[in-house]
Design a protein around this nucleic acid. Sequence first.
DNA 1: TTGTATGCGTTATCAA
DNA 2: TTGATAACGCATACAA
Lengths: 341, 341
Amino acid sequence: MEQITIKEVAKLCGVGVSTVSRAINNHPDINDATKQLVMETIRKYNYVPNNSARNLKRSDSHTVAVLIKGITNPFFSAMIQVFEREVSGRKYSFVLQHVEEFEDEVDVALRLEKEKRLKGIVFLGGLSSRTEQKLQQLTVPYVISTVDSDYGGETAMVAVDNERESKRMVEYLISCGHEKIALLASTKDDASIGMLRHSGYRAALEQGGRKYDEELVMWTEAAGKEIYSMENGYALTKKLLDSGKEFTCIYAISDSMAIGACKALFDAGKRVPEDYSVAGFDGLELAAYYEPSITTMRQPRREMAEASIGLLFDLIEEKEVERRRIFEAELVEGRSTKRLA
Amino acid sequence: MEQITIKEVAKLCGVGVSTVSRAINNHPDINDATKQLVMETIRKYNYVPNNSARNLKRSDSHTVAVLIKGITNPFFSAMIQVFEREVSGRKYSFVLQHVEEFEDEVDVALRLEKEKRLKGIVFLGGLSSRTEQKLQQLTVPYVISTVDSDYGGETAMVAVDNERESKRMVEYLISCGHEKIALLASTKDDASIGMLRHSGYRAALEQGGRKYDEELVMWTEAAGKEIYSMENGYALTKKLLDSGKEFTCIYAISDSMAIGACKALFDAGKRVPEDYSVAGFDGLELAAYYEPSITTMRQPRREMAEASIGLLFDLIEEKEVERRRIFEAELVEGRSTKRLA
DNA sequence: TTGTATGCGTTATCAA
DNA sequence: TTGATAACGCATACAA
């Protein structure tokens, strides 16, 4: 099968290449009959325009990209559909770009921006390293979505206040009568949401007159594994149980970890919530389907996805808008936590 | 920030563009000193080559793509990492291309093939429609992964035998003493794995001397929702319970549906497996973490992902190999099923 | 309404 | 070891 080009289509139709181009791109100034002819031969010969050539030539692509590191994270799943809908509703093209583990998302963004002549970028899940300098090389607007780390003054951002909401969760657990609340945390050097949620935990304890006990904080050790996974939640809980420390409640900084925690407790012959309460964070669908359902802070993911695209287009259209959109999370009381007598 | 091009880099260095190109692409015939100079100015001015131009010019790209419809499906999650590893281990670039719900994956493949000068393609999750004719337009080898529908003679494919493994599962359930086994099925017009798993269910019942009862088959109605989801499993189970039909076991054609089924049973005040047994299919991690753990057919996903890339490269290298690689699934006995007395 | 010609940014060929 | 220059396939300004 030969790679047919626009030239050959033109030749086959007995017209010039610009006419073919006009037909493809729905230009107004083209005779309807010739357009039909062109479109027919295109279909007949299965002509597919080369996107690289188009991108090279075009100045305005009407394309925005969403970059995701860890596309398999279920937290992002529901958001992806929303991105698609919101972008195509604005007559733009949508590129979902997966960033591999070892790649720098800003590098990918820089490449993609040139390659596709992007109009804007959403970084889903934030930026792993502090590459603010590199960010400045971006010539198009961008929005950091679901992470509220401090990226510097004017960075556009959509997220919940992770520290505050984490604090609220722990305040709730305290209000249920829990004194010794263990935390399943991220790595010690985490500078992103993991640390913010830890800060919220600590603040709630200290302001609630409880002792912040370092021994009840189970840090993720190896950076190799996925931090927010069930597997990690399981491992950390096992370690916690083995430590012999006393506690009545486990607060995991993600729902997946909370589920891993439950499983570890079950495997140790414990019951949830009768023996131990367990709470998570994120509000994954799964948290509701688990048995018992997991008490969690639900992030309004769909709304945040909508707002991310909305903000991005506001920036593209150079509107003067608030560049930080902070959403409220919702405390969902599941049956994985109980009030102490 | 200006979009700097290769020409300007050349000018800045006082060399020709071809020298810059040589430096970028690690050509051997270039003076080491000039190369250093070029690379330094590139870094200094943050030059990023335009990929569209490169793709346009290059003939061999050393890139393969994996196309996924439904990238949020947790079944694919673990496979993606394997694809990355396997491809980059072969010194090829890897493109993970998400196919939107309404898009035809072959169209996307055709476009991408031209745009990126692909060397090969993996279709993860099979092809939704029978577009065999279009497939022939692909000029590069491709492998259909995880779906064993009949795509015609020579189609390269890596999958489990869905019908056989589904049959095995039901045979197991029969061997546990279950007579009335309800099925949570896909849509009636499904022509893919959903139908194959249904066929296996039916075959097991009939060959096992049990009656195939159409009323125990809960077909998914609306094509709008995600078939293999917890939500759908929940809805179908609710419907089943409401129907008043008698049964002792639910076999869901996916683990997610099985979890939805469990939740529906719990919400109806039933116990699993004491009142009803529940089994799934796929062997998701989640099946092991659920309480009770779900009895399932584990597909060797990592191995299948490896084999998909392996087969693709065999085809790229024009080796004469078996084009169909069928893997065995593993029956994992969870605690969601019990033997009847 | 249509065709011709130019250039997008790069790589590759060729001659120096 | 280098540098001009010709493609790559397309969109578009301009001429017709």
